[in-house]
Design a protein around this nucleic acid. Structure first.
Lengths: 142, 142
DNA sequence: CGGAATCCTAACCGATACTG
DNA sequence: CAGTATCGGTTAGGATTCCG
């Protein structure tokens, strides 16, 4: 055995490359932010509906579920949990007869929402352009 | 058989819910943007390195590969292809002896980079805050 | 109502090997 | 150098069912 071993080389590489983006602490957050459902939940709770208007407001679980629709309750719950854990939203349980739970963005969550809103608007604004490029490319490489 | 059938109900639901966010055309773009490697490639080509400075510049495949490091060539190629297809960057092949390929952001890509840069900065700025919340939460739910 | 637990498939993604 | 092709492990994520 012994002799170099690819594993050792890989381990070394894993140390070397970390310089730029890999273990940068913001990477973990970036990964979290770059989650599809995270962005959508932020949009929903932030009142950033399709028309771009609306004020932030608390919403109940079922309300979110209905609004985001395409999401399974598993993903919704999972997303809400992680956002709560990170302090981007608060979860309030009201022990009424059938339990009532409402979610609301914190200041931290609101600040992030401003950015995700930008992403949404960019997507809307440049949609046509991107689709045009896509067609050109597909036609050229057919 | 016949009788309602859950499948039919689900099919109906699938039509109903599309109103808000599901089939909104910006959703497809949002999904693309919300990709980890897409954001990193944009940062790299946009000159948005860890220190936040730098001007956009063309980069070669191997250069990107080295800079992003954690990425496999499969993911890098795949990401670059999709970005090229969407017109966010250009791929230029120079038929030198060993082929030279360089990638550069288009205006469209640059406009998106401005947003992803914002995300990166948000992540850096609020990193500590998020981690603090996370600790609190973990301690409370232990 | 608002979840948690289970199962199970589809996709992502990394490692390897081969091409031009 | 800059890819493509293939295989396999890991995980995301959907459907279903049950619980407080």
């Amino acid at each position: 055995m012994a002799t170099t071993t690819k594993a050792a080389q890989r381990a070394q590489a894993r140390v070397d490359y970390d310089a730029f983006l890999s273990v940068c602490p913001s990477r973990q957050l970036l990964d979290r932010i770059s989650d599809k459902w995270v962005v959508l939940v932020l949009c929903a709770l932030g009142g950033d509906t399709a028309d771009g208007g609306g004020a932030p407001r608390a919403m109940r679980y079922s309300e979110l579920s209905r609004l985001l629709a395409g999401v399974s309750q598993k993903m919704l719950t999972q997303t809400l949990r992680s956002l709560e854990r990170d302090g981007l939203l608060t979860r309030t349980v009201t022990p009424t007869v059938p339990v009532t739970v409402s979610y609301e963005l914190t200041d931290l969550g609101l600040s992030l929402r401003d950015l995700t809103r930008g992403l949404r608007h960019w997507a809307q604004d440049h949609m046509a352009e991107v689709l045009a490029h896509r067609d050109d490319h597909d036609a050229a490489t057919s």
